[in-house]
Amino acid sequence: MISETSTLDAVSAPADTRDDADAGATRSARLAFAWEPWLLWLALIAAWQGIASLIAGQGNPLLPPPVVVLDALWQSLPELFTGTWSSLLILLPGFALAVVGGVGLGLVAGTSPRLGRAFFPFAKVAAPVPPTVYIPYAIAVLPTFHLSATFVVFVGAFWPVFQNTVAGAHAVEGRHRDNAAVLGFSRLEYLRKVVFPASLPHIFSGMAVGLGFGFILLTVAELFGANAGLGRFVQYYADFADYPRMVAGILYTGVVTWAAMTVLERVRARALFWLR
């Protein structure tokens, strides 16, 4: 089925762009390249099916075949959607706080030598602590699970954003600094009109890492104490040894993560259009 749609795409592509030979050439080149991922997907699903039927023949339920998982996924979709909603209500505030705080503090600490001297020794000690170790303590100390999980996501996403923003602020080109100086920019103008946009490539790198961390911490935190959410879904059906739903939950979580990363990548491409 997958190979059929791909063939259709490949055939129809040159017809789409026949009016422009160059564009047509690059487009079909790109499409030819896009074959590989689909082939890999196909191979993986085939392998999955192969192994699943092999061990199912021995009466082992650990790896349900694709069709069974697909059915479980379909059955669980309402539950997964509520779970996604519950998870996003933790992830998005935590991540947004981390971005606002990390970028704000990073810009200030990255441009002020004094604040830098105050912050960086602390950051050096605090940043490498695996944020997962905060989870039990946060759950114990903070009044609600939602607050604890949000805090942990925030901590996990904060450091990559902060550190990358500082790196970006340090990497502002001398010519931009000189131009800001001869244009008489105030410190605030310099931060807003020069350092912030110039640091955006670094900031987006930090955000991508931070978002990844955020998903990891979110799902781990949900294993501990949630009553809804993506991580909770998998943990819950693990308790019942419902492997089709577990695998469905894992796949679904992968898709949600991928979608979030794709959105971030789109925003990045938009914001950095001037980067040539």
Binding site: R175, D178, N179, A181, V182, G184, P197, W274, L275
Partner: peptide
């Protein structure tokens, strides 16, 4: 004592801000 807008400067590498 420092840069001032009363002394405008044009640098060699047309240093416009690329994001504006």
């Amino acid at each position: 004592a420092g840069p001032d807008v009363e002394r405008a400067v044009v640098f060699q590498n047309y240093a416009l801000f690329p994001w504006m």
